[in-house]
Nucleic acid binder design. Structure first.
Lengths: 251, 251
DNA sequence: CGCGACGTTGACCTACCTCAATTGGCGTGG
DNA sequence: CCACGCCAATTGAGGTAGGTCAACGTCGCG
């Protein structure tokens, strides 16, 4: 089950309609490389990626850059609009993207009208935090080949779920340079690493597509454990998250 | 302003009383090294550290370990009780700790009775996520000496705030081995790094205390920017987080 | 056809790791 | 009070994963 399906399942039909309408009404396009949010700004909108990928990143004063997270289509970037005074990271378009940017007023009204929406947004933030933890151990403890393999597994699983057997294909919009920024490696070393993955796992990375013939093999190499993605927990979200986010009205 | 003060400020006196009473009633002690939560378990309690430090960590199958986060006194470990089906990381006591473990029933009732509590807990989770992001760039992009320096700055700032001038002392309960697991380095290399920090910034690390004579100097070396800790945003939390977590009743 | 973006390769280098032994402080039991 | 043992910090010698620099190849697109 993909993230998108999970989100949709938690809203009532009426809520889903409101939500989709709001997304459509506020959709904007940006060319690749555009900064949507810059570190230190006051959050001004609730952003949801509709198509294309978006990256969260941070930079050190001397320019070293770390990609912190990837936001895939259907996912909200963050809840900063409702939480912090100033954003602590930047967000930019990996490639041409469509993003819904819902202003404060509309977003607040939307949440008012859709009691389950806060829950869904909160859930997405919870999962994002879990992914962030996995990235921490990825960069901190795994070797180069494990890191790249693990990221490939994650990106595949987030789009297609974990395949029961065999493998498949999925979008992969990162250049090797971006792959390097995400894994804390060099572009040159990522290149050699990808080549080794080609040799050892027959992984193919071409034309913005990733092909994994044997997912289990790649997952073993990466010590990939999909538990942190919390896939398939959708049905239980409502009863757990309920107390925290106030009343639930499933009609 | 420390995290603890922020939390207290957001609750009404009555709420604070309920909260404190619940913490006191559920306090437990654990010797150092005890696992409070193991990866894969179903969350059973809302945990708040009362004294001592607690670490969140993850392990790879072969034993490599990454410390993901530190929970200092006054802070809740996580909201997993209200969010996920199974926890994706482990939690253990760094040293002898006192932790309040509030069961599901009581925790739910408590949130019911204290409308602002959900907001406070949510806020702590938001800040924890921001810290996690900073750790990601720390491990991914900073050199060994920068990493250790930045972690020292963070730990100092989380306890004492950012000093306007000069420096000071604070608790520092990590061994060099744990410092290594938190920064993705080796214990041996951390040792040499700490020695270099002693030489270059006169930082002293002894008897579980950290002494930083010149905070600004250390912060410069580490490229430490305290913005990600979101200190001093307390007064604004209520109006922002409100819409997300339902009604606010400040009486 | 030329340009820009991305991938690839080679040679060399170094920050950090590994292994292994030693030191120092401190609490405990005799 | 001393001796022992444990835990953490320290030191040394040698190794390697991954970084750096610089060039070249390739593909798609205007």
């Amino acid at each position: 089950m993909t993230f998108n399906q999970i989100l949709n399942r938690l809203l009532t039909p009426r809520e889903r309609m409101n939500w989709e309408a709001s997304l459509a009404r506020n959709a904007r396009e940006y060319p690749k490389g555009t900064d949507l949010v810059r570190e230190g700004e006051r959050p001004a909108a609730l952003r949801v990626v509709l198509s294309g990928w978006v990256q969260k990143y941070k930079q050190l004063p001397d320019g070293r850059r770390q990609i912190l997270a990837l936001v895939l289509p259907g996912q909200p970037c963050d809840l900063d609009l409702f939480t912090v005074v100033r954003t602590d990271h930047s967000i930019s378009a990996i490639r041409r993207v469509t993003v819904a940017e819902i202003g404060r007023q509309e977003a607040t009204a939307l949440i008012e009208q859709c009691p389950n929406l806060a829950m869904v947004l909160g859930w997405s933030e919870i999962v994002a935090a879990a992914v962030q933890r996995e990235w921490t151990i990825n960069i901190g403890q795994r070797s180069a080949i494990e890191r790249v393999a693990q990221l490939m597994c994650e990106i595949f699983a987030r789009q297609r779920g974990v395949p029961a057997a065999g493998g498949g294909e999925c979008d992969f919009l990162l250049t090797q340079w971006q792959l390097a920024e995400a894994t804390g490696l060099t572009q040159v070393h990522v290149n050699r690493t990808v080549q080794e993955l080609r040799r050892r796992c027959a992984v193919e990375l071409r034309n913005l597509r990733l092909h994994i013939p044997d997912f289990a093999q790649l997952a073993r190499l990466a010590a990939f454990n999909p538990a942190y993605l919390h896939l398939g927990e959708a049905d239980l979200v409502a009863e757990r998250v309920g107390p925290l986010f106030g009343r639930i009205d499933r009609s």
